[in-house]
Simulated assay, not measured.
Amino acid sequence: MIQRIQTVYMLISAILIGLLFSLPFAEIAHESMLYSFNIKGIVYQGTVTENGMAIAGLIGIILLLHVAAIFLYKKRILQIRSLVLAILLNAGLFGMFYFFTYYSFDNAEISFKVSVVFPLVSIILDYLAIRAIGKDEALIRSMDRIR
């Protein structure tokens, strides 16, 4: 299982998505107040101004899809489908990051952190994993044809 390159891609992607639970996404400066945007939502001095439960739930679902895909190594087609769903949800997560930051405040200075690009890196790694799984599937089917 771990000796396959697609498993390494999925594992790295799962680790990146898991890191989103602990890292901040952005800092927002609005009217001389500094807000923090993290998994809880948009927070100002410990109080939540915008709830981020939708983002937390979406990150949890994406993480579960990656973990499930790692253990579905015997069912390659289902593995590909779960990774395609994870790619779509990652794109939605990336959109939600920008929606939360720009929807909440007008004329605010936003400083995004490096963790915002983790969904994009995860999309690239998932695509590479899908390609490798497709090659494995083609190899298995060609061997079945020879028999």
Score class of each variant (00 low, 15 high):
residue 1 M to E: 13
residue 2 I to S: 11
residue 2 I to G: 12
residue 3 Q to F: 10
residue 4 R to M: 13
residue 4 R to T: 09
residue 5 I to D: 15
residue 7 T to I: 14
residue 8 V to I: 12
residue 9 Y to M: 11
residue 9 Y to E: 07
residue 9 Y to W: 09
residue 11 L to E: 10
residue 11 L to N: 09
residue 12 I to E: 11
residue 12 I to K: 15
residue 12 I to V: 15
residue 12 I to D: 10
residue 13 S to T: 03
residue 14 A to F: 07
residue 17 I to N: 01
residue 22 S to E: 12
residue 22 S to V: 12
residue 22 S to I: 11
residue 22 S to Q: 12
residue 23 L to G: 02
residue 24 P to Q: 09
residue 24 P to I: 01
residue 24 P to D: 14
residue 24 P to L: 05
residue 25 F to H: 03
residue 25 F to D: 03
residue 27 E to S: 03
residue 28 I to P: 09
residue 28 I to F: 03
residue 31 E to L: 07
residue 31 E to G: 00
residue 31 E to I: 01
residue 34 L to K: 11
residue 35 Y to G: 00
residue 37 F to K: 00
residue 37 F to C: 03
residue 40 K to V: 01
residue 41 G to V: 08
residue 41 G to Y: 04
residue 41 G to S: 09
residue 43 V to L: 08
residue 45 Q to K: 12
residue 45 Q to N: 12
residue 49 T to P: 05
residue 54 A to N: 13
residue 54 A to R: 13
residue 56 A to C: 03
residue 57 G to F: 06
residue 59 I to D: 07
residue 60 G to D: 02
residue 61 I to C: 06
residue 62 I to L: 05
residue 62 I to Q: 08
residue 63 L to I: 04
residue 64 L to E: 08
residue 65 L to D: 08
residue 66 H to P: 00
residue 67 V to T: 12
residue 68 A to E: 14
residue 69 A to N: 15
residue 71 F to T: 13
residue 72 L to M: 15
residue 72 L to R: 11
residue 73 Y to L: 06
residue 73 Y to D: 15
residue 74 K to R: 15
residue 74 K to W: 08
residue 77 I to A: 10
residue 77 I to S: 12
residue 78 L to T: 10
residue 80 I to C: 02
residue 83 L to E: 14
residue 83 L to K: 10
residue 84 V to A: 09
residue 85 L to V: 15
residue 86 A to V: 05
residue 87 I to L: 07
residue 88 L to W: 04
residue 92 G to Y: 02
residue 94 F to G: 11
residue 94 F to N: 14
residue 95 G to W: 10
residue 97 F to N: 02
residue 97 F to D: 02
residue 99 F to Y: 15
residue 101 T to Q: 02
residue 103 Y to N: 13
residue 104 S to V: 05
residue 105 F to R: 02
residue 106 D to L: 14
residue 107 N to P: 00
residue 108 A to F: 03
residue 109 E to R: 08
residue 111 S to V: 05
residue 112 F to Q: 01
residue 113 K to H: 10
residue 117 V to R: 02
residue 117 V to H: 01
residue 118 F to H: 03
residue 118 F to I: 03
residue 119 P to H: 06
residue 119 P to F: 02
residue 121 V to E: 00
residue 121 V to N: 01
residue 122 S to K: 04
residue 122 S to M: 07
residue 125 L to E: 08
residue 126 D to Y: 04
residue 126 D to E: 11
residue 129 A to H: 05
residue 134 G to A: 14
residue 134 G to F: 07
residue 137 E to N: 13
residue 138 A to K: 15
residue 139 L to P: 00
residue 140 I to D: 09
residue 141 R to P: 00
residue 141 R to V: 03
residue 142 S to T: 14
residue 142 S to G: 06
residue 144 D to V: 09
residue 144 D to T: 05
